[in-house]
Simulated scan of single mutants.
Amino acid sequence: MTGDSPRVSGADPEHVEALVAAQAPLPPIIVQRSTMQVIDGLHRLSAARLRGDDKICVVFFDGDEAEAFVLAVESNTTHGLPLTTAERKLATRRIIASHPQWSDRMIASVAGLAPGTVATIRRQTQDVPTAQTARIGQDGRVRPINIAEGRRLAGQLIAENPGLSLRQIARAAAISPETARDVRNRMLRGEDPMPKSRTRKQAGGAAAHETEPRDFTVPAVRTVLERTPVQHRTAVVERLRADPALRFSETGRALLRLLNVYTISAQNWEEIIDNVPPHCGGIVARLANECAGMWAEFATRLEHKVVESA
């Protein structure tokens, strides 16, 4: 049966007729296993019925209603008949309500809108909790909404406890270790922890929380895992696993296998670290650093590809 679709206007008869006339094999539709509702593939299902087909390929999705809706929106912005701008904005309001911890860029990547548009919709939404101090970005990392507050707190911690490590400061202030390093270096030079450019913007009336901080540094593994709940990381990977474009290609399945490491909990990472034999520690650390470099290069090239295709 058809599910809770972001396509307010329902199926487009012309698009259905075009699918029927093409007489090509229809890609699998996505169905929520627990409810048997169609998440993605309403037009394909209608076309199959008009063709007189008694079967259609299905990819099952295991997740709750909110995650199913997110997948439906994401699927309808990446292939098939796109959602209208009005439908994407309505979907964005619902995603903000169900996933307030997601950053504007994260939601924008799902809904197919500009991050600024998502930010505007978020400000207009009255029933969204306002007590958040951080949000989960498109890359799964947690960043503070107000970077100025994180720097201020880091400066206070450094002044009161000069012996704290950068990792300890970063974890306590919800900033990256490199940001903590910058704050410490500025204080050693007798400068304000906040860069002048940011200070001028705030003095001119630009609220710090209206612009998501951009942090391109790679934080320590432990810091990332402690600040990003494993259920959130797992949800991101599960959404990718439900994408037919990845599941039904060899390279896609290889990528999903690599991304399994993203779902390991902080506790399991600690157990792995504790059980690496001392005589292997140096080699494993070097390989881990090389892997981090490969992933960083992979991310950079992929981001460039996304920008070029936009």
Results as ranks from 00 to 15, higher is better:
Leu19Cys: 03
Val224Arg: 07
Asp54Ala: 13
Ala173Gly: 05
Met294Thr: 14
Asp54Lys: 12
Arg152Thr: 05
Pro28Leu: 02
Ile272Val: 15
Thr263Pro: 02
Phe60Gln: 12
Leu287Val: 04
Leu45Asn: 06
Arg51Val: 13
Glu178Asn: 03
Asp182Cys: 03
Val16Gly: 00
His209Asn: 14
Gly52Met: 09
Glu14Ile: 10
Lys196Trp: 12
Met106Arg: 08
Val221Ser: 04
Val230Thr: 15
Pro278Gln: 12
Asn289Ile: 13
Ile96Met: 07
Gln32Lys: 06
Leu240Asn: 01
Arg152Ser: 00
Glu238Asp: 15
Pro82Phe: 11
Glu67Gln: 14
Gln37Lys: 11
Cys57Val: 00
Thr133Glu: 04
Ala172Ser: 14
Arg239Asp: 05
Asp182Lys: 06
Pro219Phe: 06
Ala207Gln: 09
Ala134Lys: 07
Pro129Lys: 11
Glu270Arg: 14
Asn146Leu: 02
Thr234Pro: 03
Thr211Tyr: 08
Val276His: 09
Pro162Asn: 13
Val31Phe: 03
Ile30Tyr: 02
Glu191Leu: 15
Ala22Leu: 08
Pro244Cys: 11
Cys291Phe: 08
Asp54Thr: 14
Asp192Glu: 12
Val70Tyr: 01
Ala24Asn: 12
Arg44Asp: 05
Gly112Tyr: 07
Phe69Ala: 08
Val38Phe: 02
Gly80Tyr: 09
Glu17Ile: 03
Pro193Val: 04
Glu238Leu: 11
Val183Lys: 03
Arg181Glu: 11
Ala292Trp: 02
Phe61Pro: 02
Gln23Asp: 15
Asn76Ile: 01
Gly137Leu: 01
Pro213Cys: 11
Asp53His: 07
Leu256Lys: 06
Glu87Gln: 15
Val307Arg: 13
Lys305Pro: 01
Gly293Thr: 04
Ala174Gln: 08
Val31Met: 08
Ala11Ile: 13
Leu19Glu: 02
Pro162Asp: 13
Asn185Ala: 10
Ile121His: 01
Arg44Val: 04
Asp62Val: 13
Ala131Pro: 00
Arg239Met: 14
Ala242Phe: 03
Asp192Ala: 09
Lys201Glu: 08
Leu225Ser: 06
Arg184His: 01
Ser5Cys: 03
Gln132Glu: 08
Leu166Cys: 00
Ala68Phe: 04
Gly116Tyr: 07
Leu113Gln: 00
Cys57Asp: 10
Arg122Ile: 11
Gln156Asn: 10
Ala296Asp: 10
His43Arg: 00
Arg253Ser: 07
Ala24Ile: 09
Phe69Thr: 05
Met194Tyr: 07
Arg93Glu: 08
Arg105Ile: 09
Gln23Lys: 13
Arg44Asn: 02
Met36Gln: 15
Trp102Arg: 07
Thr78Tyr: 07
Ile272Pro: 01
Leu42Glu: 13
Arg184Gln: 14
Arg123Trp: 09
Asn275Gln: 15
Lys55Pro: 00
Gln202Val: 05
Glu303Val: 11
Ala154Gln: 03
Leu42Lys: 10
Gln168Lys: 09
His279Ile: 11
Arg141Trp: 07
Leu164Cys: 12
Ser197Cys: 12
Trp102Ile: 01
Val221Gly: 00
Ala148Thr: 10
Trp269Asn: 03
Ile136Glu: 01
Asp40Lys: 13
Thr228Trp: 02
Asn268Trp: 06
Thr130Met: 06
Asp139Ala: 05
Val142Ile: 06
Ile175Asp: 01
Thr35Phe: 05
Ser165Ala: 14
Ala91Pro: 03
Ser34Gln: 08
Val218Arg: 01
Leu45Trp: 00
Ala242Trp: 00
